[in-house]
Design a binder for these strands. Structure first.
Length: 347
DNA sequence: CGCATTTGACCTCC
DNA sequence: GGAGGTCAAATGCG
């Protein structure tokens, strides 16, 4: 299957979804050599589908207003409107505070909370000419971390999709994360007082950050990955990671766990680095405290957790129920259906 | 009871 | 004065 360069995003995604279901069916049985080759072919097509999709998203982000400007499409932009569009278009007229602090980066993502950080919501604002409210978050990893982000859901209704697509969010990062240094200092200070006790260490970490999931968190596990906040190459890294992970999981012929029960939005499956218990800080509707081993922050194939998925199926337990996430989960509408921010919460 | 979220009020800028 | 951004008291949840 080749992807028509003129195909529309919904078509490509639908094709990718179809491929994934075929692949799942194929992988549900032990594979002989021939079966592996077929699976590899499927996986390659699947990779192309995702690359094509991301390429379309990126190109839309760069030029086309239909993805980037919410529900205001193609209208003239007087000065007043430019301000309203400042977070989604080329024209940015940030407030004094934002200007002083500086916008670090922007990205369009279906999973605005999957960036490896823990965020605390501190505000919500109805933005003029925007269908959805804007949400304001501060880094919750350290009280003194200056990093912030704004999350604005794009109006998907104008995209004319024929299949269900996840909502797209524009995430604007403001200020670099300083929590690494702050946390390191805290850890050093903790060691000075009482070296080598995890309880002490946990005590000095931010309460919300250290409380969940035992010792390690993403900083501890992947400090080289979760470096600065909102790096410029994030999208490219995501793409590479997705392609690499898909190729890896298929080439390894790792059969995925049984698909989640239909209609259960909380049921998704995730791979995880072996030996590193993944943590769901919050799987609530807002997905406030993230992160798990989601693809968003995995920068390179060298750290693809999927390689170990076969023996490290991750069970994230919360409220007595197991929550799983799979490599296919990022394309699974059941994931995004759970956290469309205010759109469905306030309907 | 502690913490996160909500939300109206307030501040600043244009 | 309107709009975006932030604050902080109120509220809800575990």
């Amino acid at each position: 299957m080749a992807f028509d360069p003129d195909a529309k995003l919904p078509d490509v995604l639908a094709g990718g979804y179809h491929l994934s279901t075929q692949l799942q069916a194929l992988l549900s049985h032990p594979l002989d050599r021939n079966g592996q080759e077929v699976a590899m072919a499927f996986s390659q097509e699947l990779s192309r589908a995702f690359v094509a999709s991301m390429s379309m998203l990126n190109s839309n982000n760069a030029a086309a207003p239909e993805v980037n400007t919410g529900n205001s499409t193609g209208v003239s932009t007087p000065a007043k409107d430019q301000r309203a569009r400042s977070d989604s278009g080329e024209v940015v007229t940030p407030s004094k505070k934002i200007r002083e602090e500086g916008v670090t980066s922007k990205e369009i993502t279906p999973s605005p909370h999957k960036d490896g950080y823990q965020w605390r919501k501190y505000g919500q604002k109805k933005i003029q000419n925007c269908k959805f409210s804007r949400y304001y978050y501060k880094c919750n990893r350290h009280r003194r971390c200056l990093a912030k982000k704004k999350v604005q859901q794009q109006d998907g209704s104008s995209r004319g999709q024929q299949v269900m697509l996840p909502p797209v969010f524009e995430v604007t990062y403001v200020n670099e994360h300083t929590c690494h240094v702050l946390r390191a200092n805290d850890h050093d200070a903790a060691r000075m007082v009482s070296p080598g006790t995890t309880n002490n260490r946990r005590h000095h970490a931010l309460a919300g950050a250290a409380r969940v999931g035992g010792d390690g968190d993403l900083f501890d596990l992947f400090p080289h990955i979760i470096g600065g906040g909102g790096g410029g190459g994030r999208a490219e890294e995501e793409k590479d990671a997705i392609v690499s992970c898909l190729a890896t999981v298929i080439s390894g012929a790792v059969p995925p766990p049984p698909p989640a029960a239909a209609g259960d939005p909380a049921a998704f499956v995730t791979p995880a680095p072996a030996g590193h218990p993944a943590r769901v800080v919050d799987d609530g509707p807002m997905m406030m405290m993230v992160e798990d081993t989601g693809f968003s922050w995995v920068p390179s194939s060298s750290f693809c957790p999927v390689e170990e998925a076969g023996h490290a199926e991750l069970a994230m337990n919360r409220h007595g129920g197991d929550v799983h996430k799979d490599v296919a989960g990022f394309a699974d509408t059941t994931v995004w259906a759970q956290h469309t921010c205010g759109a469905w919460r306030r309907a």
